[in-house]
Simulated assay, not measured.
Amino acid sequence: MIDRFDGWIAGIGTSAGLRAVVGHWPRSPLGAFSDVMVEQADGHRVLLAPSADVAEYVGSTYVFDEVRLGPVRVAVAGSDWRVDAAPLDLEFTVGRRPAVGWLLHAVPRRLATHPRWVAAIDVVARTVLPGVRTRGSAGGEREEFYAALDLHGLAAARARWDGADQGALAPVAPPVRFGFGSTPRSPSLTRIVTLVQEA
């Protein structure tokens, strides 16, 4: 059995050291939802999940020091995204598609989302985007595949955590430590299909 999550992942760093990974999933086995994984400057990892079902699934797939349940709202207006997931308040603007994005965009979707293709390009992904993996463990006896379909850089972002400004947009550095790989170092929005299957 393969669980398929179809949506977007945004990876954002801030000058204060907070790093956030926003998942926005219009289609998934859990229905439409959004969630946020946050690693604070001191390394504390927090999952912001909209429901117990999402928290259980994501928490069994990735590693967190804390899980908080509450509304996670994502609003998209053109290139502007707004994420409301207390204690995180985040806005970002999507920018240009870099060369890697054009390459991803050119691969036919049926091929790009096949587990064998995703596994085959894992080495390439690690070389082109250090820290990024396309295949790894999803916890238990499950494997996870990240099938990236497109990628855009972020032009700007503003983040507040517990009301405190987190500073300017910055690289996602050091890499986040939720699972087997990180998002690209450069803040970005990735169009993605994530596949989780029994090993």
Rank of each mutant, 00 (worst) to 15 (best):
D165I: 05
E141D: 15
G139L: 04
L169T: 06
P130A: 06
E141M: 04
G139T: 10
A168T: 13
R160V: 02
A164W: 05
A170M: 08
A119L: 13
R116C: 03
V118S: 13
A125P: 06
P174G: 09
R158G: 09
S137D: 15
T127P: 00
D165V: 04
G131Y: 08
A138R: 03
L129H: 05
G153D: 14
R126Y: 09
G179I: 11
A156N: 03
A125M: 12
A164F: 06
V124Y: 05
R158Q: 14
R126P: 05
Y146T: 00
F145S: 05
P171I: 05
I121S: 03
P130T: 11
A164C: 04
G153Q: 09
A157K: 00
A157M: 02
V132C: 09
G136M: 07
D150S: 07
T127W: 15
V128I: 14
R158A: 14
G139C: 04
D165Y: 09
G153W: 14
V123D: 13
R126F: 07
D150M: 01
R142F: 07
T134G: 12
A147G: 15
P174T: 09
V132K: 01
V124C: 04
G163I: 07
L129I: 07
A159G: 08
A125K: 01
E143N: 06
H152C: 14
A159N: 07
L154W: 02
E141T: 12
